[in-house]
Write a protein that binds this DNA or RNA. Structure first.
Lengths: 123, 123
DNA sequence: TCAAACCCTCACACATGTGTGAAGGTCAAA
DNA sequence: TTTGACCTTCACACATGTGTGAGGGTTTGA
């Protein structure tokens, strides 16, 4: 599919799709006329990238972790250098911290909202 | 305490502490000589702010949700306008999405790392 | 054939979080 | 009294994600 369709199907501006490509997060082939041609699977990929970006991860990190996120897990490990594995472990731990922080604070907000609801319901 | 101590105890640059204050995330009083004076509780507050920032929330949102995050919950609801409650609910949902996205992807990384470990252990 | 709707690259612009340094005031210890 | 370690404000700078538009090619349908 071309960039317009991918843009529509992912709710992502063409500008950003080109940016993600420039950052190595998604790939495209080129038609004879120079237009980008995207694979069907890119739809999920773009959505995943956006989720991670929204969760606060920079493209630099997303690019590093994406290879381990592919659906049919590639059992091709030799490409994982020790440095890369260390980075991955570190990033996994940072993600865990984020999850905990977010969960903790979200629960506090929930409690607050519940309390307000109870207060208003009782009046 | 003065800014230097708060900086040391939170691992946050003075520059950022002033920035957080400018954004209304933390407060300080002033000594006679103009120096900022921070309350002991600011240590936790700064750490919380940093956690939320690291989790991807902008200062604008953090400022809005901080009031519901105070330890001894202030049961003083009239200040919560309907618009603010709507914002809170929306932000709570966004946080939930972030948590889910992060968890999903972190688990995938974990699986990948486990697989690599098993592969290397078996050789 | 011409207009509309695509696509391309390139570049400037903006908000946000953060670093760095200048120019200068305060305070404590030597 | 002077030095050094603090503090102040202000301003410029940078990376990152994202918007916008210029200048120009391609494709499709009226």
């Amino acid at each position: 599919m071309r960039i317009g369709e991918l843009s529509a199907r992912t709710g992502t501006s063409r500008r950003l799709l080109r940016y993600y490509e420039e950052r190595g997060l998604i790939a495209s082939t080129r038609c004879a006329n120079g237009y980008r041609d995207y694979d069907e699977r890119l739809v999920d990929r773009v959505l995943q990238v956006r989720g991670l970006l929204d969760a606060g991860l920079p493209t630099r990190i997303i690019k590093q972790i994406l290879p381990c996120l592919d659906k049919p897990r590639v059992i091709y490990f030799p490409d994982a250098t020790p440095e890369m594995l260390a980075t991955l472990e570190q990033e996994r731990d940072r993600m865990t911290e984020r999850v905990e922080c977010l969960t903790r604070n979200r629960d506090a907000i929930s409690e607050y909202l519940d309390a307000v609801k109870a207060y208003n319901g009782q009046r």
